[in-house]
């Protein structure tokens, strides 16, 4: 299982590099799709089907919208980097990589051994079932233990839809 995970992560990194370096925007978007779908398989391998369902549908919808946008506009990446800024980009990139490695080492040292979470999670599932009665603990956490979070999330969704409709539609405008 570890080998599958490592292979998928390497594939995702390659996809990200191709998406960054490609001059053709359509192939860049397809490499973005590789990242998303590999992430879906990783969720399935790590037995998180909840996330996999949402990820695969959102990824497909986003890809369709992005491809439609590219086909309607332009396919060539026309952005040019000014020469003087390249040095700054390298310096900030190296500083960021160093900070990222430092904090990643600190974070991974505090994690438990891979696969050692099994018994702890089983106990959490039993406790959650006793307290809520729902056998799917993820839903129990989202809708019972953290109900206020979900209420806020639904409100944010409502507000964003209201914003999109207000910006896009001509029906209610004054002029």
């Amino acid at each position: 299982m570890m080998i599958v995970l490592i292979a998928l992560i390497v594939l995702m990194i390659l996809g990200a590099i191709v998406a960054l370096e490609s001059r053709d925007l359509l192939s860049a978007i397809i490499s973005l799709g590789i990242i998303g779908f590999a992430l879906t398989i990783i969720f399935l391998v790590l037995s998180a089907p909840d996330l996999a369902i949402v990820q695969i549908i959102i990824e497909t919808l986003t890809l369709i919208i992005l491809i439609a946008a590219v086909l309607k506009t332009t396919r060539a990446d026309t952005s040019e980097t000014v020469n003087a800024r390249v040095v700054m980009l390298w310096i900030s990139g190296i500083i960021f990589m160093g900070l990222f490695l430092l904090s990643a080492v600190r974070a991974f040292q505090s994690l438990p051994e891979f696969g050692a979470l099994g018994l702890r999670m089983a106990q959490a599932y039993l406790d959650g079932f006793r307290q809520t009665g729902a056998s799917n603990l993820v839903t129990a956490v989202i809708l019972d233990f953290r109900g206020y979070d979900t209420l806020g999330e639904a409100t944010v969704l409502f507000t964003s839809v209201a914003g999109v409709v207000t910006v896009l539609r001509k029906a209610g405008r004054k002029d």
Binding site: T132, G133, A134, S135, N136, T139, A140, L143, D144, G147, T150, A154, L157, F158, S160, V161, V164, V165, L168, R169, K170
Partner: peptide, 30 residues
């Protein structure tokens, strides 16, 4: 078996599906 969780799920399902569909269709109409 989960009590109220089923009803919260139904409410969230109606809300999320309607929200995504509204965004999509307002792009088309625009």
């Amino acid at each position: 078996s989960g009590g109220n969780i089923a009803f919260y799920d139904i409410a969230i399902g109606i809300g999320v599906s309607a929200a995504l569909f509204t965004i999509f269709i307002s792009f088309l109409i625009a």
